[in-house]
């Protein structure tokens, strides 16, 4: 096997085991579709199912839900990893950056912008006017672990407005109001206060080996880890209380 292919597989390995976490809620369709994580490759927005493969965005019409039909395919590059729907936009995470698409006309998807960064694994979640990215080193030779806040008020012109570098190995993430739940695998979960993107600070660390999180109804966390599935009550956002779990069977 050639070196390039190995790096490619290594990134896939990272993807499979590490980067998967977030609040995939699509408020426009909350009653129709569910929510996935920040590293999801499937997303439903309006009457369309979007799937990201290795290198492209696939668009299926599900107006007739029993019979999805192929609509279009847009080639994006070889390093596509995640898709996050929000309103009329899709936020697509690639190792080289975040692509923002306008999907208000599903027959004619429009790429608005690409926010480029150093080569990293990068789950992304969106809330309000901000996109939150967890940049995990490992997929690129000059990368560093990092957390970034990007102002997407103008989706055609995303701008970095904050960052937090004191992270160990960020994978997936979820957002609730002004708090970010950043999964760091064996390093636990960091709860970051992002109320002021220019002054992000650590509220608390939890010793939970999680790599994936979904925020349910703004008051619960569903976590997946190598040890099992956990559900936490976050009525008090910085003091999560365990309410149920399904342990992995050894």
């Amino acid at each position: 096997m050639k070196k390039g292919a190995l790096i490619y597989f290594y990134c896939f390995w990272l993807l499979t085991f590490c980067c998967s976490c977030g609040d995939g809620s699509d408020s426009a369709n909350i009653n129709l579709s569910g929510q996935g994580g920040s590293m999801a490759r499937f997303a439903i927005s309006g009457n369309n199912l979007y799937v990201v493969g290795e290198s492209s965005l696939l668009n299926y019409d599900i107006t007739d839900p029993a019979h999805p039909s192929f609509n279009s395919e847009i080639t994006l590059g070889f390093d596509i990893e995640t898709i996050f729907p929000k309103g009329n936009y899709l936020f697509i995470g690639a190792q080289s950056g975040m692509h923002i698409f306008d999907v208000s006309d599903p027959e004619n998807l429009v790429k608005l912008s690409t926010y480029s960064h150093i080569v990293n694994c990068d789950p992304v979640v969106v809330s309000g006017n901000y996109a939150y990215e967890s940049l995990q080193a490992g997929c690129g030779s000059n990368s560093a672990d990092q957390f970034e806040v990007i102002d997407i008020t103008d989706p055609a012109n995303p701008k970095q407005v904050g960052q937090y570098n004191d992270v160990d190995s960020p994978y997936g993430l979820g957002v609730v109001n002004n708090y970010i739940y950043l999964c760091e695998g064996e390093f636990g979960i960091k709860i970051l206060n992002v109320q002021d993107p220019e002054n992000i600070f650590l509220e608390k660390e939890l010793a939970i080996d999680a790599y994936d999180v979904i925020v349910i109804d703004q008051d619960r966390l569903l976590l997946t880890s190598v040890d099992g599935i956990y559900q936490f009550d976050i009525s008090d956002p910085i003091t999560p209380q365990l309410i149920s779990e399904i342990p992995v069977v050894e």
């Binding site: 929510q35 996935g36 999801a40 994936d212 997946t224 992995v248």
Partner: peptide, 29 residues
């Protein structure tokens, strides 16, 4: 048996948990 949980998905009061490369657990929540 839950062995290698992967992607998770929430739909209403149900949780969908991917068992990596094997299938999907559906859990009543």
């Amino acid at each position: 048996p839950l062995k290698k949980p992967g992607k998770i998905y929430v739909y209403g009061s149900y949780l969908f948990v991917n068992e990596q490369q094997i299938g999907i657990h559906i859990i009543n929540n």
